[in-house]
Design a protein around this nucleic acid. Structure first.
Length: 486
RNA sequence: CGGGGCGUAGCGCAGUCUGGUAGCGCGCCAGCUUUGGGAGCUGGAUGUCGAAGGUUCGAAUCCUUUCGCCCCGACCA
């Protein structure tokens, strides 16, 4: 990690670069005093709020309501669904003492690693008739998973997320919900975060503990590794049976509900960083930027301030009226260059400089975060142009990310080629044939630490065509996405 | 859980081998000069040297114990 004020180049050490950007953009810092936890600082939290508000709108548009369930879950709940316990037991934190006394083993709680169990408990109380279905609930919450290795935003002991939990009368309805919410995530990632994603299905080995099937969106980071950016699970009747969530059908029969759950977390912020940013620091797509435009007035003497500041203020008001998140950096005692670097580190998409020269000529200097050169624009047309400039920048970042991903995506047919693509810890997206067995998947993972990220949904990968498994040569029905993963 | 590293000013570190009473850079504060791509000068403030115990005239430094954090290897959004 570089010293304060410096960012290690991506090409030199990608993990160090990432840590440096997180620090220099003032997104978060390691809590240190609490193992594996982080403090999300105002600028980082503002990005989370952007994510929250847009997703929340999308959830409401698809008929969901927010609710809140307890942080503590009785241990007995966790133990009810066999695969669920097995999957989460190693990373659960347990409350063993409370009120100054040790709690008897049967009365201990765990801090939620996810809420399927406690929500299942309440669903069983709330649901009795097909008229109660579908039940579409979302919760914004923190969860805790005792991780061995933590990385800011990508994997921390405590993290913020949303978890959707729904119950349906038929498996078909539940499956529709799973894909609907996967698409909400995918659309959000592309439209708002300018982060292209592959939508697919997890293999059994990678699916959520307790689910029938897990769907996911996978994004490519700038080091070629894959980031699972969101998941949507078909829980079948597993939790319905474990928590006795039954309803009466129209015909009067008793049946277990079909459930789904889906979530995205503060990990998305890590994805945002590693999709767009560069050696200067954070780069934010305008729709995710807490500050979209920063105006830096350049003034030397009081006489200049009197002329420059009114122009700046007019521009500020005009932009604000158009719904642009604009900030004027009129701090004294900092030089303009210092301010430029600071806002570039923090990922502000567009900077506007206004000094005496500009006031005299009726222009302003502007610089897009990734532009080589500054551009001179007439002040009286600037405010009307900026929404379009930001929109173009949003599209530019998406196109750039798509190009990067496509340039680093390969189709691989032989094991030798596969080893070549992933040698020395390198990663790309590799479309490969796989024989569909867990044994082969595990074997490849052990030999190379490369994993199957997903089986692509229609249109998300190469058209299905029969072939031979890259490792065993056994028959394969289609290609799967393989990569190193975060 | 195994292997390695580190705890000294807000941050990053030197000092530890060879004990002698606390230092550097950045940041911070004040003032002046500066201000179109990371300012300069002058002055100033800041430390239970991770904790506890021991050895010693004297411990950041040696010994013992202990706590915490970080990095690397088996699980995970």
């Amino acid at each position: 990690m570089a010293e304060n004020g410096k960012i290690t180049p991506q090409s030199q050490d990608f993990p160090a670069w990432y840590q440096d950007v997180v620090r220099e953009a003032e997104l978060a810092e390691a809590a240190k005093v609490v193992k594996g936890c982080m403090v999300i600082k105002p600028h980082g939290y503002a990005i989370w709020e952007k994510i929250q508000s847009d997703l929340d709108r999308r959830f409401k548009e698809t008929g969901h309501q927010n609710a809140y369930f307890p942080l503590l879950i009785p241990m007995s709940f966790i133990n009810k669904e066999a695969e669920h316990v097995e999957g989460f037991a190693p990373e659960i934190a347990v409350v063993t003492h409370a009120g100054g006394k040790a709690l008897p083993e049967g009365e201990q709680y765990c801090i939620r690693p996810t809420s399927e169990t406690i929500i299942g408990h309440f669903f069983s109380k709330w649901i009795s008739s097909y008229r109660d279905l579908p039940l579409l609930i979302n919760q914004w919450a923190n969860v805790m998973r005792w991780e061995m290795h933590t990385r800011m935003f990508l994997r921390t002991t405590e993290f913020l997320w949303q978890e959707g939990h729904t119950a349906h009368a038929t498996h078909e309805d539940a499956k529709d919900e799973v894909i609907r919410m996967l698409n909400v995530y995918g659309d959000f990632a592309q439209e708002m975060m300018a982060m292209p994603v592959v939508r697919g299905i997890k293999t059994d080995a990678e699916k959520f503990a307790g689910a029938l099937q897990t769907m996911c969106i996978e994004a490519m980071m700038r080091d070629g590794k894959a980031l699972q950016a969101g998941t949507s699970h078909d829980l079948g009747q597993n939790f319905g049976k474990a928590f006795d969530v039954r309803f009466q059908t129209e015909q009067g029969r008793e049946e277990f509900v079909w459930q789904t759950s889906w979530g995205v977390s503060t990990r998305l912020i890590g994805g945002l960083i590693m999709t767009h940013s560069d050696d200067t620091g954070l780069i934010l797509p305008p729709r995710m930027a807490p500050v979209q435009v920063v105006i830096v007035p350049i003034t030397r003497k009081d006489a200049e301030r009197e002329k420059v500041l009114p122009v700046v203020d007019g521009l500020f008001r005009d932009l604000k009226a158009r719904g642009i998140a604009v900030k004027v950096d009129d701090r004294e005692g900092k030089r303009p260059g210092d301010k430029y670097y600071e806002w570039e580190r923090k990922g502000v998409p567009l900077r506007v400089e206004v000094g005496m020269r500009d006031v005299d000529s009726g222009t302003a200097m502007t610089r897009l975060r990734i532009a080589e050169e500054k551009q001179k624009i007439a002040i009286d047309t600037l405010a009307t142009q900026i929404p379009g400039i930001l929109d173009d920048f949003q599209q530019m970042l998406l196109a750039r990310a798509e190009k990067f991903r496509d340039d680093n995506t390969v189709t691989v047919d032989t094991w030798d080629d596969f080893l070549g693509v992933f040698q020395d810890g390198q990663s790309k997206f590799a479309w490969c044939h796989w024989d569909g067995t867990r044994e082969t998947e595990m074997r490849i993972k052990e030999e190379t630490s490369v994993t199957i990220r997903c089986i692509p949904l229609p249109g998300q990968g190469p058209a299905p065509e029969p072939g031979r498994c890259i490792r065993t040569g056994n028959p394969s029905a289609g290609r799967v996405l393989m990569a190193r993963a975060y």
